[in-house]
Amino acid sequence: MSEAVAVPAPPQLPSSYVAAWRTIRGIIANDRKAQIGAAILAGSIIVAIIGPYIAPHDVEEPNVAIRLTGPTLSNIMGTDHLGRDLFSRIISGLTVSLLVATGAVLIAVVIGVPLGAFAGYQGGWVDTIIMRIMDAIIAMPGRLLAIALVAAVGPSVGALWVAISFSSVPRYARLIRGGVLAQREREYVEAARAIGESSGSTLLRYVLPNAMAPVVVQITLNFPSAITAEASLSFLGLGLVPPTISWGQMLSGAQDYLEVAPWLAIFPGLALTLLIMGFVLLGDALRDHLDPRYHGRRRARKRAAA
């Protein structure tokens, strides 16, 4: 075993998936920021699921008589240029926003994790080439790439998923590759290899449980950018098109009525901000606790006190 890689962790068994999950739950239980974030997200998910049942109005039904009216008791967030209820449409937009973002993040994870693991285990020129490509993708402005991609293939949910996930794949690949490289140095993997365990199995048994915490942080922080990306693309007319309801698209339409119906621009934006805030608060809190730099600081303080 190499002396150079200082890895303090004791051998972790598959039950460390449970342990990692417990750590995350512990953080949420003890950190105020994480609690607020988790509460916002839990609320959002519930609303997204039961949305159609609690929406006070039909999202498509026009009612010209009340078009562009401000918030009232019946339409608490006002109505749009066709007299449709903004609140109901925002609820519907939440479902769409979460679905697109979840799909994009999932694709990034499903491609990035095996890619990083493959690069890490293969090493040599395979590793070099894969990681060079990852570097190049990171070097490009992700939003720009997404716009160009959707522009090329035309707007659809599938195109959005690919376009949005494309630039986040390298983040997962790097994380997992780092985990594989660190793990490969560890004694117990050597031992596992010796008794004939495959690299796929060591990946599942040792690498992933250890990399789980940073991956969860990455996922949580990946959501805000995926949500913003979908909203941005839809805002530009390159994302979801009617009849699918998207917040970005609603905001785009609101531009025409900024003077007479500012609520059309205010409420979808607030909804977007709140949802993003849920992920940011939770992700930030998780990172604060799981990032090794945070522990480094604690140690430094203890040393000073000794």
Partner: peptide, 13 residues
Amino acid sequence: VTPGFWVALMLVL
């Protein structure tokens, strides 16, 4: 947490 394009809209407003 605030998407830039929404902040832009609010500034325009």
